[in-house]
Design a protein around this nucleic acid. Structure first.
Lengths: 343, 343
DNA sequence: TTTTAATGATAAAACGTTTTATCTATATTT
DNA sequence: AAATATAGATAAAACGTTTTATCATTAAAA
């Protein structure tokens, strides 16, 4: 049963031609007569010839694979992203090799090292603290790289991400428009630049609206807390900040923890507490009364990332105008930010 | 800057030895003296030598990559699955190349063809109707394959999935225990065997409990309906089946559509309608009053799949006792199946 | 001392491609 | 008719590795 894989050499023998001729025909190069071409094509087709990617890769130095290193593919944001990236890459004949780091630095380093064994032609990476050196190294070695979701300030590694500052600013603005004045924020202390940008946007908006920026209404959930601990922390935070009438969660993960906390406390949204969370998903659209969210344009981000990467792969240089790409987000207003009932 | 990748040949030159010697040392084969070994290892280390996977792959026929073909990595079930598979495979030094089919048959065929270009050593596939031939072909060519989430009845392709029949049976049982007697079901007509098994379990349970099995309380949502159309279809179904007091959704996707429908109709869970859905996720745990779900043991399924695949890869034969692996599911009871208030 | 074994090292072939350089035969130009 | 161009085909090298077979050299056995 096990029919041996047919090679270019076999086709040459079957058609009584040379290896070169077959290769030329199959790749549309060289100058080969119509009749011989047809004969070769026929035989290749009939025997289901498929080039050996390893051999091609060895000879050409091109693997037609791109490496996708993300924090975790589990979440809705990265899952959707991975999907788009895969679809877009496929149009250029590229496949995706996927790795997750689970926020583990060593794992991230290992992944980069492994993939750099001539295995991939380019990288799409969600950066994490501590990976600067390794990634810069790739760039120095002229490997195409695009960062998504985060970036390294001060370097010129291309990155495409949502406008985190503006997004957070808009969230606060939305609260203010609906009459909320004591706006808290819950974030994580992962040391990620994108979270920092969100904090800055939040603070700037408070300032511009002449609202008090009390550090008390600002919670940083330690990164090593599990879900239950996180919920408890948020509960404690909410209970303590009695005057707080609105809260902004800077990630999807924190947002669902927040909902759990609010539910546990039997508070009403938005009457007791208005809510906005980063990253739209099914929970937020369905959970009564509907949670207002900042929706990241997954498709745009993924598409831009792959475009920039492909440009690098094809031209072997990087377009300086595409280093820092900020994509606007979309505020999806739902019941959780209805205008405050005037007492 | 761009330091050229160092090869085994370079190391040989640097250490004044032969290519063979270097290869032997690096792979711990052959018999090479301590001193020369050390010298070679040192130079390799210092220059950050990494073997060229393409060359190794070409020479050995082993790529150390496994192909993961799923319907869509977006969903919570597959996302979690992909994560576990990747982690487990990594322990054996394998990487994952990931493809999604989006329920498109041609895409599935293409993916299999592409990956079979000596690119992967084995496959984990969520099967779909129409892919039998292509997958059987892989098996016939002695490629290691494991199916997850579904299978092809009558073939002996190894597969590991949750016990769909028993899971559905248990769901009905749960309804019955809580006093519900008019139990409907919503499924999709994707022609997937796992959905069929769920239907059979549902029907068997109805029969065993002497409940009426009216085909009227059974809705098949056409696979080409988008989310909004689906919600409308479910709404119409619920409105029409006035006597129905409980409904079982056979997929995660249908379950959230169902919640939306019930919300739109302003019905109360479980008073107007008790609910159970397949596939646990955050929406179901958070959505009031908590939706009872059938939780697939993602970790167990993924772990088993990769174990079986690795066994095939390592032994070059498949263990007949591991063809049909059924993993028990876990019924997570929440507020949506609280005991029926006796009128 | 001669024969046999064991040790340490290596040359060379092979994996399946792509591509450069070359070659022959025919067509075109002088 | 001789010189030159072109079309069509191919030999051979190269990519970086693994592995078989071989070759010295030294140690052990006869």
């Amino acid at each position: 049963m096990m029919k041996k894989k047919i090679s270019i050499k076999d086709i040459a023998k079957l058609t009584d031609t040379s290896i070169t001729t077959v290769s030329f025909v199959l790749n549309g190069k060289g100058r080969i007569s119509k009749e011989i071409s047809k004969k070769i094509l026929d035989v290749a087709q009939k025997n289901g010839y498929e080039p050996n990617r390893m051999a091609v890769g060895l000879r050409t130095g091109v693997s037609k694979v791109i490496g996708l290193i993300v924090e975790s593919i589990g979440g809705p944001f990265f899952g959707e992203m991975a999907k788009v990236i895969e679809e877009e890459a496929e149009k250029d004949g590229y496949r995706i090799i996927y790795c997750s780091t689970n926020n583990n630095l060593q794992k991230g380093k290992d992944m980069i090292r492994m993939l750099s064994q001539q295995l991939v032609d380019g990288y799409i990476i969600t950066p994490m603290k501590g990976l600067e050196k390794d990634i810069q190294n790739l760039v120095d070695n002229e490997k195409p790289v695009v960062l998504i979701d985060g970036y390294f300030p001060g370097t010129s590694i291309p990155h495409v991400l949502v406008d985190n500052y503006a997004s957070a600013y808009n969230a606060v603005d939305c609260f203010v428009r609906s009459g909320y004045k004591n706006i808290g924020m819950v974030t994580a202390d992962l040391g990620l630049i994108q979270l920092n940008d969100r904090s800055l946007g939040y603070k700037a908006a408070l300032k511009d609206n002449n609202l008090k920026d009390s550090s008390k209404m600002f919670l940083k959930v330690p990164f090593d807390m599990d879900k239950n601990e996180g919920v408890e922390a948020v509960k404690a935070f909410i209970v303590k900040q009695k005057q707080m009438d609105a809260v902004f969660f800077t990630t999807n993960y924190l947002g669902t923890m927040g909902l759990q906390a609010i539910k546990d406390l039997k508070l009403s949204i938005p009457d007791d507490l208005a809510v906005i969370s980063f990253d739209d998903n099914e929970v937020f659209s369905l959970y009564p009364p509907g949670i207002t969210t900042i929706q990241q344009p997954t498709y745009d981000i993924a598409k831009s990332a792959i475009d920039i990467l492909m440009a690098q792969i094809n031209t072997h240089k990087l377009d300086a105008s595409k280093i820092d790409l900020k994509i606007p987000s979309k505020l999806i207003e739902r019941g959780s930010t209805l205008s405050k009932a005037t007492a």
